[in-house]
Design a protein around this nucleic acid. Sequence first.
DNA 1: AAAAAAC
Length: 589
Amino acid sequence: MDAFALLSRGGTQFDKRRFNKEVNLFSGHKKHAETVASTSHTTDEFPEELDFFKYAESGVLGTKGEGAANGKSRAADSERTVGVERQSQGSGWEGSAKRGTKRKRSLEPERTITSARRVRCTGESVPTPIHSFVSLQDRYGLAPELRKNIAEKGYLTPTDVQTQCIPVLLEKRDLAAIAPTGSGKTLAYLLPVFCLLGAPGRSGASEKQAGARALIVSPTRELAMQIHNEALKLAKGRKWKVVVLNKATGNALRDKAARKKVDLLITTPLSLVSALDEGILNLDNIRHLILDEADRLLEEGFLKQIEAILAACSYPEIQKAVFSATLPAAVEAIANTFLRRPIRVIVGVKDSATDTIHQELLFCGSEIGKLQALRNLVVEGIQPPVLIFVQSIERAQELFHELLYDGLNVDVVHSERTKAQREDAVRRFRKGEVWVLIATELMARGMDFKGVNLVVNYDFPQTVQSYIHRIGRTGRAGRQGKAVTYFTKEDAPYVKSVANVLKASGQDVPQYMLDLPKPSKLKKRELKRHPIERKDIARAAGAGVGRNLANKKRDMICASKRRKTEPAGDKGGKGDSVVRRQVVLTEDE
DNA sequence: AAAAAAC
C-alpha cells in the first residue's frame, strides 16, 4: 500500500484547497438537526425497531436468536463470532477468517505470491511481475512515448495489480484480474494493449494490419468515455486512433478508409452489437479483447450481447482478459468458458472493499428517517464532492428535487437523462461545480472521481458487489474516503452480508449487525424488498419532519456567499461566487 | 435475487 501513498495520480490530484473548508451550510443551527433525527445517531446499539426475529424461521435460527440477544446487550461472544464468519463463507464471499484456511485448491497448478502477499496469482507459467515501468523498456520494448506519458501522468511505480497484469498481458496470455476499486486496473490493461498494438494503423497498411486490433467493452457510456480519456493521455504523441463507438462515430465508420484507421475501439455492448448487425464493422482483426467490469457484463441482460461479440471476434490468436473488483465464482466460471489457459490475478481479499474507505452502516428506521439522516448530514456540514446512490430512477429524481428544494448544489445521473445531461452532470461534478451528485447504479462502477470524499448509499445496495463498487467511488489510489450506508427495517435481512464486508476490511461493526440472521429463501421471497414506493421520499418530506428544517436551511444557505438560488440542474453557475472559486481548482477533465 | 443499463 505504501506505493499508493507515493503515487500521484497525474493532473487529477486531489487538491485539499479545493474544498478547503467544510461546506457548513447551516453552522450554528445544529440544534435543529438534533431534534429531528434521534433514530439516526446510534449505530452500535441494537435498535428496538429492528425486530428481525420475525424474519427468522424458528428451528433454523434458534441459535442465532441467542446471538442476536447477545448483540442487544453488546456482549461479544468470541465463539459466536467465529460461527458467524463461517456462515458467511457459503455465499462466495471470502471473509477474513478464510484467509487462514485456504488450502484445498490443489486443482490449481501453480501459485506465485508477490508484492508482500497482496497479489496472488494462479495459472500455468505465470510471467514474472514487473517492479518498475522502466523495466518494461528492456523486457518488452515499451515505446519511449508510452513511458514518457506514464511519467507525465505522475505514475511512478506500478500498482499491485499492474505489477502482475502488465507482464501477463504483454506475454499475450488470457487473464482474469480481480483487484480493488481505484487500484489502477485501467492502466493495467491499457498500457499492454498499446504496447502490443504496434505501429498505428495507416491507410496504406495491408488488410491484415489495418483496422481495430483491440477492443474494450464497458457496461456504461460514461465509463467508456473515461477509458477513452485515459487512453488518449497514454497514447499522446503516437498516431493511434482511439474511438468510442456511438451513433456519430458509428456512422463515420461506414467509410471503409475511416474504418481502417481505427486502432483501438472502446464500446458499450449494445452499440457494438447494433454496429455489427448493421454491418458497419467486423471484429475479424481484434487481437486483444478486454471486458472491463466483467462480472457486470456477464450478467443477464448483457450476456447475450457479450456472446455475440465474442462470436464476432474471429481472429484465431485473440487474447482475452476480464477485469473487475468483484468476480463471483459463478461468473468467473462463465468467463473461464472463453478464456484460454487464463492466468488469474487477485489483489487483496476477493470481493472485499478498499481499505482506505471508512465505512459506516446507519440504521434510519424508515424512509422518513433516511431523509432526516441525509439532511442532518448536510446540516452538520458536508465536504463536497459527495456521491449519493439510490435504487431506482424515480427515486433518483425524487431525491434530486428534494435536495434542490433544500438549495443544495446538486445534480442527478441516470439512464433516462439525455446523453448531454449525463455528460454535463459528470463533467461538472468532476470540476467541483456540482457538490452532490445523485445517481443510480449507473455510476457505481469504474467511474474515477478522484476527489469524492463521501459516498452515501441512500438506498441499501442489492448485492455485496454493488456495495463494494459503489463505495469504491471514494478512497481511490490510496486516498482516504468515507462511505455511509443507510438502512431501514426492510433492509435488515440484507445488512448482515454487507456488515461482513465491513468486518473483512477492518471496520468497526456493531455485533448485532453481524448477528442478524440471513432469512431463509422462503422468507426472502416473501419479503422481496417491496419496491420502495415512488412517493416515499416525497411523503417523508411532506410528513413535516424535515420540511421545516428544509425551509430553515434554504433561508440560511450561505446567505453571504450565495447570490442566486439557482440549482445545479439548470445551466447555473454564472455569477455564483462559490462556484467560481471552485472552478479555479478543477480536475483536468 | 433484482433494478438498471445497453442503439
